[in-house]
């Protein structure tokens, strides 16, 4: 945990209407590492993930206080450009959600809305992004086919390519493999391993083995509290708290 910090969260509280979903969470997330968020359903880990690119803004009657600093800038300041923030902090959703467009158009979507028009640069971005997401070899001859024609695992990798195309620094993953078969899951995990050389990755997962396999650090959430946050190795071999151990061993949750 000695690496440079990328995200620093200080005393974060989050409310859905009157219901408190995050309780005074403070955490420092290191640069170019994989951080896993674990905990039982409804513990606030997905809510926490979505505070990092302000996707929670889309839900009405939510409230937030505290600070989320990315590269030492509080993203909840008034003058923050959400569009810029979301380019910097990409997101992969639980259910793969390719647009009903061609594979090429899916990946080119982000660069295009940023005003990029040159065909050759777009071609290049599409190719690089698909290579980074390990999908290029499978689709290079079918770039004009619909993104929806791909299998579930391929669709999720297409979504990763789409996120990579806007050149983010942080990638948030909300249970990216929970709807996939074991082989596709392995591919996504290999990909995460590959990507952490260049990106800071935060992944929410219900799968303990997955957290243990892919992450460097793990944070355990319970009922809106951050209970324990330490290196994955320590977390899964010798956690500090009994509660953490009980959850990891599958005694509750």
């Amino acid at each position: 945990m000695n690496a440079n910090s990328k995200i620093k969260v200080e005393n974060l509280n989050f409310f859905y209407g009157p219901k408190k979903a995050l309780n005074n969470v403070s955490i420092i997330i290191p640069d170019k590492k994989v951080t896993a968020l674990i905990g039982p359903s409804g513990c606030g880990k997905s809510t926490f993930l979505r505070t990092l690119n302000r996707m929670n803004d889309l839900i009405t009657s939510t409230n937030i206080d505290g600070k989320v600093l990315i590269d030492d800038v509080n993203i909840y300041e008034k003058n923050i450009d959400i569009v810029e923030l979301r380019k910097k902090v990409g997101m992969i959703f639980q259910k793969s959600n390719p647009f009903p467009k061609s594979i090429y158009e899916n990946v080119a979507f982000g660069p295009k809305i940023n005003g990029l028009k040159e065909k050759n640069i777009l071609d290049e971005i599409v190719e690089i992004s698909l290579k980074k997401s390990a999908l290029w070899d499978e689709v290079k001859d079918d770039l004009n086919k619909s993104g929806l024609s791909l299998s579930g695992g391929q669709q999720q990798r297409l979504c990763i390519a789409r996120a990579l195309a806007v050149d983010p620094e942080i990638i948030l993953m909300d249970e990216p493999a929970s709807a996939l078969d074991p082989i596709s899951t392995t591919k996504i995990e290999d990909l995460i391993f590959e990507l952490k050389n260049n990106y800071t990755i935060i992944i929410v997962t219900h799968n303990m083995q997955q957290a243990a396999r892919v992450s460097d650090n793990t944070a355990f959430f319970y009922m809106g509290d951050l209970i324990e946050y330490t290196s994955t190795q320590k977390m899964f071999t010798n956690p500090e708290l009994q509660q953490t151990e009980d959850y990891i061993r599958g005694r509750f949750g």
């Binding site: 569009v83 997101m91 959703f93 996120a163």
Partner: peptide, 15 residues
């Protein structure tokens, strides 16, 4: 139109 598509677009920095 599924909300996931809207979320996907917004998450890419689209207005």
């Amino acid at each position: 139109v599924p909300d996931e598509l809207r979320a996907g677009s917004l998450a890419l920095g689209a207005t």
